[in-house]
Design a protein around this nucleic acid. Structure first.
Lengths: 159, 159
DNA sequence: GCCCCCGTACTCGGATAAATCATGTCCGAGTACCTACGG
DNA sequence: CCGTAGGTACTCGGACATGATTTATCCGAGTACGGGGGC
């Protein structure tokens, strides 16, 4: 998993706390977390293509959430940054070389058991991430530190 | 996930079918699946360090399973090849820059909610892989293609 | 005084380098077998 | 004939290249604000 996913999730949580009518520049988000501004911009860019955030250029431009925080799952973010490609890619080695002659014995190609097993595990992972929303995480943070949302909003509201 | 994991699992299944008193050289396993021999050797090497296979040098040397197939889980293989490092590494950006001042507000460092969420998802993945053994997968294959085990053993028994 | 136009400053967006990691290769260390020699 | 020592062939194990992917940077495209000029 690319670490940009972590950045993106934190950014989404923070964005859910700033005034909805205020766009936050990538540089400001980067400063807040001590991250390289240009690179973070690239990641937010990816979120934009996925529709998770909306972006505008120019003065008073920047990023804001593209949907309600309740409608953004961790899976959405992960897919936007990492891409939707499967982590485990069955390369079909079962059918290469002498092994192929045995696997394809009856002429019917049964699904690769190994790939199936890993797919199941990955599906569990995906489901778990898909069941968690930004709003939920933000709320958990707020519960542990009730002042955080206001503090964050205020920090971003400062010029 | 590195694709060496896929290779390793297939190799383990095949090893569970060859005569237990017979070690299989890496080159032979590689040939069976049409894989680069030297590199597969490297992967099997990793399995050896983890104790999943035992290895011997010299003539009639090679690899054989280090435990019963029932005692080898997919998680074991994945860890042996990929390493046990978490896929999602919390880099602690929550405490960098101005964000740190807010997160550490009360002087008590609460666990990072984002990291926790991803850890849960990853744990689901790990549990799923840990519940699947090589023996189980081998049996599934055998059920779909009853002749496979014998065919495989015979192939490896050929000089 | 009001409106329009232009210049400026600011921010995104994608094209372009640098670094890191996975992939792949090679050669030395180790081991068993086979052969030859001596008892 | 039996035991032993040495050579040889085979295989693992880790050190060394290579290529792809991730990380990071830079500059052009786009947009709103502000000032100046004209009506």
């Amino acid at each position: 998993m690319r670490e940009g996913v972590e950045w993106a999730v934190h950014c989404c949580i923070n964005l859910s706390w700033v005034s909805p009518d205020r766009a936050v520049p990538a540089a400001r988000l980067a400063e807040f977390h001590g991250l390289p501004a240009a690179y973070l911009n690239k990641q937010l860019n990816a979120l934009g293509r996925a529709g998770l955030v909306s972006s505008r250029s120019g003065p008073r431009g920047g990023f804001r959430l593209g949907r309600e925080p309740e409608e953004i799952t961790l899976m959405d973010v992960a897919v936007a940054i990492d891409g939707s490609a499967r982590a485990f890619l069955c390369t079909g080695i079962r059918h290469q070389g002498p092994a192929g002659g045995i696997a394809d014995l009856a002429g019917h190609r049964t699904p690769c058991t190994v790939a199936q097993a890993f797919s199941h595990a990955e599906l569990a992972w995906r489901h778990n991430l898909a069941s968690r929303t930004i709003a939920e995480l933000a709320d958990t943070v707020r519960r542990a530190n009730p002042a955080a949302p206001d503090q964050v909003r205020r920090w971003f509201d400062r010029t």
